[in-house]
Amino acid sequence: MKARKIALWGVMGALTLAICFLENLWELPFLPPGARPGFSNIVTVLAALTVGIGGIFYLTALTVLFALLTRGVTACLMSLAGGILSGGLTALLLKGSRRPFSLFGVAIAGACAHNAGQLAMACFLTQTGAVWLYGPILLVFSLISGAITGTILRLAAPYCIKEYQKL
């Protein structure tokens, strides 16, 4: 592996963690505590488009570890559930050449999957079904945050792919 590519993996990891850290700084109104726009998904999808599916799992593992170190075991488990679902779905949607969704759709699907995973984990951890009451608002929120992420992705992806090929 060329040094430039190794550096790229490092930069992607740093970007993801920086976004996660910034998103932890404030709580969003009307949403359950801990709900975040998940802009780090931009980096995840870009990683998948350049270095490949392995990038998704690398970044997911990194965020899960980051959650464990900064916010404890519960946050780590929540992050893990969301990360596995979202990462798995993103990998699946980007696999092959006949993709059912554009990057816009991929971002929305990833956001929804992330929230579904977190809700399922919250449900399991609290042993109550009541957390599903957050479902509708989280889904609508995923749609909005996914649309923002997707728009950024559509703008950034062609440029990133082009630059990656020069590496």
Partner: peptide, 22 residues
């Protein structure tokens, strides 16, 4: 793509159903 619109519609539908039944 068409798939995107279907996805958006499906998510909204799921949210509405969850809202009604949960």
């Amino acid at each position: 793509k068409t798939g995107d619109w279907i996805l958006i519609f499906a998510v909204l539908l799921a949210a509405a159903l969850l809202f009604l039944f949960a």
